[in-house]
Each structure stands twice: as C-alpha cells, then as structure tokens.
C-alpha cells in the first residue's frame, strides 16, 4: 500500500493529505472538505496541469510567443509536450487563441497563443 503525501491547494487552508488505494478504492485522509477529498483523489489517480511555455516567433519585435494549453493535460505528458514545442516556430501576426499545436502529444489539449502579436512594422 503506497501512501502519497500532499498539500491540498483548493483553498489557503493547505490541508496535509494522505492518499492511498485500498481494496480498489481511493482513500483520502486529512481533507477538511469535499473539494479537498476530490482534489486528493484526482492527484492520486490522474494528476493534471496546465502547460504554459513559449515558442519561437518570427516577424515580430519579440522573439518568443507565449502559449498555454487549452485545458489541463496529464502531468506525465508535460515533458513530452514541451519537447514537441521545442521544434515549433510561428510567424507573426498571431492572435490570442490561435491554435499553435493541435492535440499536443495526444493529450486532447491544444496549445494556443496566450497573447496577440502584430506583425513587425
């Protein structure tokens, strides 16, 4: 039985959670609310994170374009997704929300521009 210790981040109370699997059920100890229970369970079974980074940009005053995932992606896919972004160069102009990479690393999330950049004058 592998127990996972974590700090809950759903509110500033910062409860210390212990989460483990027992007879096919996920048990959460230390949470003081239902949201905390759910957070513990999710972090144990399928932790997800937003991915924010930059990609190379051409034709603009800036050299990098800020990007964000359209939804959270599995934590274990973060490194792979980043590696995939490594090869990406985008040309200005770009508008916030433009899709830079669709379904990154098969995560179901798109990588989109998180800002608008006009073409250089």
């Amino acid at each position: 039985m592998l127990k996972k210790e974590m700090i809950c981040i759903v509110c500033p109370n910062s409860c210390r959670l212990s989460v483990w699997e027992e007879e096919g059920r996920i048990r959460v100890e230390g949470a003081s609310c239902a949201r905390g229970m759910a957070h513990g369970r999710n972090e144990f079974t399928h932790p997800v994170r937003m991915l924010t980074s930059t990609v190379r940009l051409e034709g603009a005053r800036h050299r990098r374009l800020a990007v964000i995932s359209s939804q959270e992606i599995p934590k274990e896919k973060i490194r792979e997704a980043l590696a995939a972004l490594e090869g990406v160069t985008v040309s200005a102009p770009v508008r916030k929300g433009d899709i830079i990479v669709r379904n990154i690393s098969g995560s179901g999330a798109d990588i989109v521009a998180s800002r608008t950049i006009p073409a250089a004058e």
Partner: peptide
Amino acid sequence: LQQCIHDGFGLHRFGKRMAGTEYAQVFID
C-alpha cells in the same frame, strides 16, 4: 504581465485561471 506567461490570473474577475498574457490581452483588446 507580458512576461507572466504562467496561468493563475483572473480567477476573481473572470472566474477562470488565465495566463498573465491572456489577462492583459483582454484589457488591450
């Protein structure tokens, strides 16, 4: 905000966690 590419902005005002750049873009637009 243009260098704050991470998310976590806007939860109080927009009810969602935006990148700093996204938050700024709303006002710039």
